[in-house]
Design a protein around this nucleic acid. Sequence first.
DNA 1: CGTCGCCTTGAACTGACTCAAAAATTGTGG
DNA 2: CCACAATTTTTGAGTCAGTTCAAGGCGACG
Lengths: 253, 253
Amino acid sequence: MRSDHPPGRLPEPPGPIADDGDEAHFCRTCAFAGACQAVGYGKPELRQLHCLVEHVGPFRTGEYVFRTGNPFRAIFAVRSGTVKTSMVDKEGREQVLGFYLPGEVIGLNGIYPEHFPCDAIALETSYFCRFSFPAMSALAARMPAVQHHLFRLLSKELGSASLLAGDHSADERMAAFLADLGQRCAARGFSGTRFQLSMSRGDIANYLRLAAETVSRVLSRFRGQGLIQVEGRQLVILDPVGLRRIGRSLLPG
Amino acid sequence: MRSDHPPGRLPEPPGPIADDGDEAHFCRTCAFAGACQAVGYGKPELRQLHCLVEHVGPFRTGEYVFRTGNPFRAIFAVRSGTVKTSMVDKEGREQVLGFYLPGEVIGLNGIYPEHFPCDAIALETSYFCRFSFPAMSALAARMPAVQHHLFRLLSKELGSASLLAGDHSADERMAAFLADLGQRCAARGFSGTRFQLSMSRGDIANYLRLAAETVSRVLSRFRGQGLIQVEGRQLVILDPVGLRRIGRSLLPG
DNA sequence: CGTCGCCTTGAACTGACTCAAAAATTGTGG
DNA sequence: CCACAATTTTTGAGTCAGTTCAAGGCGACG
């Protein structure tokens, strides 16, 4: 992965995770690509979809894209970078809900309460497409393809929650997490076997409901078994099949 | 709660959990009540909404409302009874995803994959309203209130997944589970402090990621502390405040 | 009345956690 | 560029909440 941009004024369009990314490429792998295709790329309706998009960013590491309690007005597609969403409970403990890669959408869980129920925090310098939700709803009412796409996005997110569910060992969780991340990277056009863990061990641990120490230990064990290679946050999956086998009870398919 | 109907032919409209339930009452507390109200009860559009509803049932204890892999064609609102949804992983272990009371909706997670990703199993004799999803989508495109209502339902379900998330003690989980169940009963017009646990201890344990023995022990402890009263599956919440305090880190609000 | 499934309770075990401390990495200022 | 401070990551050792294993009780049903 390309290193973060140097401090100071940043140019508008940064490359996503890998160097082969550009804006056209992003649009191909964006969560709304399906909607755009369904509309038809040549048609004027596509212009309407693009009209309600606003490019926002950069958000630097640690900056909030939105905060718990902010009024819900829009959803965000990651253009480049990575985001975590998390809630802080009444005891002040953080709970990481998920990690989002370029092309994925955050904020959908704010529709019902009409306020964001969680924080969204950039894990590295990140850019987004901001879709005004009222405008999007209105467009969806006129364009069934867009409506259906939104339903699909919501339903998909419902399904992904089950990676967390269940009572599984630290090894299973970790293996499933890495395999899932690799697969999502691959789906976005990046390498599925060689990528950056843009979140800390602590965040991974929190997400998987483990202690940070346990994450570290499992990672070391996996390395010893020749499943992966880890240097800091740089990860190489050496044995994708083995990893998937360990995490198979958590993985879809 | 009224005991299950005796075997044999069942009359069409059974009472939901409590004896004070009837069809009109159900419609008031149904997940689509908001959509109906938004449409306006007198208007012809409401007829269209009701047209695509089909009353199905009874499903007896243990019967499947739908199964993993069934093509997704409809969503179901519980009219009376209780349902659990669960997945079976590749090792053959069951994972309970949720319990659904009268007025709540199941099947939304089938939209994206276009097939149901889980089983839905009646925990007692149950009846449903079946909403054809293609018809519902079409109606939603013409009626923004219906569309918005579907978005809300999906988003709400996203939020409820977080009751499972996080790393919490058996006591916290159990207390939050009971408090949540009581609150949902109350929201549907039933008693929020005196109701039936229509699921087995094993199902509760599975849902909360605990062993059945642990559920039993925690329940006994809560009884000893005067928080609840339990006789088999009959539950009385004696100290709702105390219960909520134990489970507060998991509960919304 | 006996069988079967579900629930409860006891006792011993264990995987992951907590505590502690060293090592590596990152950030900062001179 | 280097030194120093702060943070993150790794590794070790002991502890514990919840599990597993085992036995007994209760209620439903034929």
